[in-house]
Structures are given as structure tokens and as C-alpha cells.
Write a protein that binds this DNA or RNA. Sequence first.
DNA 1: TTCCATGCAAAGTGTTTGCAATAAT
DNA 2: ATTATTGCAAACACTTTGCATGGAA
Lengths: 137, 137
Amino acid sequence: MHLIDRLKSRGWRLTAQRRAIADTFSGPSIHLTPEEVWVRARVAVPEVSQATVYNTLHELVRLGELREVDGLGRSRRYDPNTHAPHHHLLCDGCDRLVDVFPEGDLLASLPAASRHGFSGLQAEVVYRGTCPDCAPR
Amino acid sequence: MHLIDRLKSRGWRLTAQRRAIADTFSGPSIHLTPEEVWVRARVAVPEVSQATVYNTLHELVRLGELREVDGLGRSRRYDPNTHAPHHHLLCDGCDRLVDVFPEGDLLASLPAASRHGFSGLQAEVVYRGTCPDCAPR
DNA sequence: TTCCATGCAAAGTGTTTGCAATAAT
DNA sequence: ATTATTGCAAACACTTTGCATGGAA
């Protein structure tokens, strides 16, 4: 079932704005800021407001259709890949962000003695480096 | 050599404000927001301004005396532990942040085929979970 | 005496909110 | 006809900046 249909079946009122916003997330490895979503959505619906973009992004996160990615720059990014658990590879030069799928159990790196009694642990990894385009030659 | 002396030897003008700000970072596992630094520094120097706190924190980062930790809440946090490379364990309930020292090579989890040609890779891990105080019983 | 550091207040970002008008159902 | 959604603009939280004053060297 496609995104739009999933949303409809959950009682969403389907407006041109929401459709335009949801449509900006077609593709697997996309990480848009609210600003970028706004710019793109306005191509289809010029009168869409930033408030609606923010509202809709929050909704999509709440419904599990988007994942919020924090701490990679001044602005949040939204990632439509919620099916496959993954991590991120960030270029320090140009801020390019790529999905990556590390292998092995990342939690194994944290010995029980270092867990400070925490439960329900999960590991979130950001790999940082320099992408080929930004590498000095 | 102590922090204050290191700063002096690098040509810092030592003011009461800077001393008060630097002094808030005594201890190994401290992660203060600029606001928290401001509150604490004002105990010693009531007239210190937020601008000076921000200026000084930036300086300390530039000099390698503090590490900036992003993306763990609305505000940045500053971490005085720059000697021992480490990662963070965050409580989803109360935002408590603890330094942890994972074992093994975290980069090994990312196969060459997944590195997209990036160079100079480093892994930054945030372990998330629920601390003992926040765990339902 | 020099000039860096400070405090203040204004401005800048990114995000959230209140509310009347609008449009999907 | 109902009521969720929208756009606007104001409010917000955090951070940065400009500039005259003050203080360390």
C-alpha cells in the first residue's frame, strides 16, 4: 500500500498541501529539512505555509511514516526510511547524508558493566568523514 | 597543567568571568548547557552575561578544552572530557547523559562496501535507553 | 596605554502556537 | 453541515552579532 493510501485509511483528510508534502519524500535515501520540504512542496502548491509543513511532518512522524534525525546541523532532517533500521554517514565537508546498514550487533560494544543499569538500550551511530567530492586531491 | 594555566599560557586574558565559566567544568562526566553554565557562573560572578558565556564556550571548544555535543535536546551541551575518546548513554526519560567507553573497533561495523568512498571515518555513538530511576517497576 | 573582553540589546534562526477563514468529508 | 486543516502572524527558545564601555596586560 502506498503512503497516501495508508494515510487515508487512517482517517487523514487528504488536502493538496498534505499530498504535496508527502510527495517530497519519494525515494529511499532522502533527508530533507523542513525548509527544503517547504520549497519543494510549493512547486506543486504555491500557497502552502511553513506551519502546515511543520504540522504535517509531525503527523507523519507520529504515524511512523517519517523518522526525525537530529543533531546533524542547525535544522532537523526527516527520513522516509522507517522500514529498514539504519544509521547515517555524514560528510563533514558538504553535509551530505547517506543511509548505511552496519553489520553485527552494535550493542555488543557496550559491556554490561558500562550500562549503568540502563534498560531497553539501542545504539544510534553517526559515521563522520569526508566524501569523495570533498576529499582534497 | 591545570585548565586555567593552559589557557593563560595560550595568551588568554584571565578575567573573573572566564575563570567562573571554566570552573563550572570541574569533574569528569559533566554535560552542561550554556544556560546551566550561565546559572552556575553567576554564583561566582553575578554580572556575567549570556553573551560572554557563549563567547567563552566557543573559545574553549576552539582550544580543544571542551567538546560540543549536539542533538540530544533543544540545547547544546558541553563536555570537558576531551582527553579520553568516548561516547554517550542517554536516558529517554530524564535526559541524563553518561559517558561510556565502548570496547572494540566501532568502525569495523561498517564494511568497506558501505563506506561510499568516504575517508577519515569516525563513529559517534549515542546509546539510548531508560535509566534505573526512570524504569517502571 | 593598548586593545581584548564584556554587557547590553537587537537581530537572526528554526520552531511552535492561537485563531479566524477555508475546505474535505 | 461538521469539523479538521490551513495560512497568517505573533510568540518562542536558543544563539549570534554590533558596539560603546571597561579592565587585563
